[in-house]
Design a protein around this nucleic acid. Structure first.
Ligand SMILES: [Zn+2]
Ligand SMILES: [Zn+2]
Ligand SMILES: [Zn+2]
Ligand SMILES: [Zn+2]
Lengths: 164, 164
DNA sequence: AGAGAAAATGTTATATTGTTGCAATTCTTT
DNA sequence: AAAGAATTGCAACAATATAACATTTTCTCT
């Protein structure tokens, strides 16, 4: 069974992809006793709809464009909730957020960040990350999250099919 | 031969550690034909002296405290130079900079970030990172840098010998 | 040495990102 | 319904980073 890709990929039905993510998030929250309020849902939807990681102020703009009056603290609080509960990731080097496709295995992740077009692909965690957490433990470091970020050029940009 | 630790470690002669880093940086720049100007040297020294990753504005303050009048753009430009040339790393999740102890193998690295005390230890790159870069290449992603950031609790904090 | 080009730094203003604190509202529980 | 907890609205503000342009220093070539 193929992974749901986090980053936008050409030629797929992204509306369907977003709907799937939102319904999975709703399921996850119901099971975990979390409140996916309308605001949080809208923020999550804005993040998923985007083809790039979205900054907090871009999320503001997106919601305002839909007629909601939201200010930064509101968005940051919703993002806090979503990140704490593994529904989005913050890509620190971009000051931006991306939908998470690995709900429940939130703490570890691997990301391919294209410095040309800004797209980010999330790969599933693998045993290397877990092994690293174990090795860190041997050095008396208790790792809560292990994240690997590769910065470079994505296939589309290398092929010249995307503007910078 | 033991690695020079990036993060502060109890009970070592940190002045000596800083002097070593600065002289290694000077050597590196001389060999590479780079200009380690007085300003850049002072910024690098401020970063190395600190026991935590240092923010750009903290660096400003440190230099001002020594009698230099420096403003943010000046510091950011010096940091740009130092980072481009592998003398410091930016820890994106902390908006802060740390001296690099892996000059020349700058692009890949592994970091242990303590969320209690803010200390960061840099571990040397290993085959895990190279293997990941290779796998990314198989997916047509050209990785220029691969960095692993583990967030958790360091040994000192776990032992309760450090305040938060 | 001296002129011109390039690199580095100084300075002012501004842009971007993120937070604090408190009031108002909504949801949950008793 | 009443009390308490969680969420949201709102205004001001703090922290981080950059743009644009002037000035100085350094390098290069004659
Ligand atoms: Zn999609
Ligand atoms: Zn790209
Ligand atoms: Zn030291
Ligand atoms: Zn610590």
């Amino acid at each position: 069974m193929p992974e749901t890709p986090t980053a936008f990929q050409r030629g797929h039905d992204h509306d369907r992809c977003v709907r799937h993510a939102l319904s999975a998030a709703a399921d996850h929250c119901r099971e975990a006793g979390l409140r996916l309020t309308p605001l949080r849902r809208k923020v999550l939807q804005a993040v998923w709809r985007s083809h790039h990681p979205l900054g907090a102020y871009e999320i503001c703009d997106a919601l305002v464009a839909e007629g909601d009056q939201v200010l930064p603290p509101t968005v940051y609080r919703a993002l806090d909730f979503l990140e704490r509960n593994g529904l989005v990731h913050r890509i620190a080097s971009l000051n931006a957020f991306i939908g998470c496709n690995q709900m429940g295995r939130h703490s570890n992740g691997r990301y391919l960040i294209c410095s040309d077009c800004g797209s980010v692909a999330e790969l599933p965690p693998d045993e290397l990350l877990e092994r690293f957490a174990f090795e860190a433990g041997a050095m008396a470091f208790e790792a809560r999250s292990v994240r690997l970020e590769a910065v470079g050029r994505c296939a589309a940009c290398a092929a010249g099919t995307t503007g910078p």
